[in-house]
Nucleic acid binder design. Structure first.
Length: 266
DNA sequence: AAGATCAGCAACCGCCTGACC
DNA sequence: TGGTCAGGCGGTTGCTGATCT
């Protein structure tokens, strides 16, 4: 394969580069009304001069209502390390276990911060020297997620953007014709009909975390489907605490099920 | 104060895979 | 059964802006 996608290779004008607020609004509005039916048809229907892949990327990494933005917490960081150890560079699988984070975000975070941190850790352990503070904390006043990117300027389904607050769970955007395997809906009326049939709009699991790891897997490996055994992942988390100092898996003193347990080890 | 440096991030690119015809 | 198409993923690039010199 490797050929260019038809939607991207056609002569018709396809915008590239950063998305404008107007484009965000168009895309978000379109998906709010019609859902994600067929990415390749969305640009035309929504009046965007983008290719479908670009729309999908923008939605998945930026406009999705269930995305939380802001810096990664120490707990998230630890879990990324553990999951990376277990899953390798399967960013989408890692992202599936970190609700509210996109694979791109995690990948960037890893490349920018954690890889460096791990290297430092290794270097310091081999040299037996003292740990140096992570150099990257030096910049970006306050160490926030940067805040340099424009906020998700428009999302009809969300309250005013608040980058540090987790967004509500993915509810509210429709998935007209988005049942698995559904074919493209190439005209907006069909999508609209699907979206509005019955008067209410059904929200599907389009932004739902991936299916839980297979409980039937053996104790020491990830399944081909991407699910990892709980014991295996726990071992990985333990390993991360070895690397980065102890952290409580549950994060709860009272022993109740934590956010992380319920998501990562569900 | 201005240029250099660098971290952070959005988005593109190329490839793979599965569905459909 | 092979070709085409679309979705998805990981790697990489380039821009922006904060910080340093």
């Amino acid at each position: 394969m490797g050929r260019a996608h038809p939607c991207c290779s056609e002569e018709k004008k396809v915008r590239k580069g950063l998305w404008s607020p107007e484009e965000d609004e168009r895309l978000a509005t379109h998906i709010a009304r019609f859902g994600v039916s067929c990415w390749s048809s969305i640009p035309e229907i929504a009046g965007l001069q983008r290719c479908g892949k670009s729309c999908r990327l923008r939605w998945m990494n930026y406009l999705r209502p269930d995305l939380k933005r802001g810096r990664f917490s120490q707990q998230e960081e630890d879990h990324i390390i553990a999951l990376h150890k277990a899953l390798g560079n399967s960013w989408s699988q890692i992202a599936a276990r970190l609700p509210g984070r996109s694979d791109n975000e995690i990948k960037n975070f890893w490349n920018a911060r954690l890889r460096k941190k791990l290297r430092q850790k290794e270097a310091s352990s081999t040299a037996g020297g003292k740990l140096e503070p992570a150099a990257s904390h030096r910049r970006r006043g306050g160490g926030e997620d940067g805040g340099t990117h424009p906020a998700a300027i428009f999302n009809p389904l969300l309250p005013a953007p608040d980058q540090d607050r987790p967004r509500p769970a993915a509810a509210g955007y429709v998935a007209a014709g988005a049942a698995a395997g559904s074919s493209c809906v190439n005209d907006s009326s069909a999508a609209a009909a699907a979206a509005t049939s019955g008067g209410s709009v059904l929200v599907t699991a389009a932004a739902e975390p991936v299916a839980a790891p297979s409980p039937a897997s053996t104790a020491s490996a990830c399944t081909e489907a991407g699910g990892c055994d709980d014991g295996f992942l726990r071992a990985m988390v333990d390993d991360a605490s070895f690397l980065f100092g102890d952290f409580d898996l549950d994060g709860n003193q009272d022993g109740s099920t934590s956010f992380w347990e319920s998501h990562v080890f569900s």
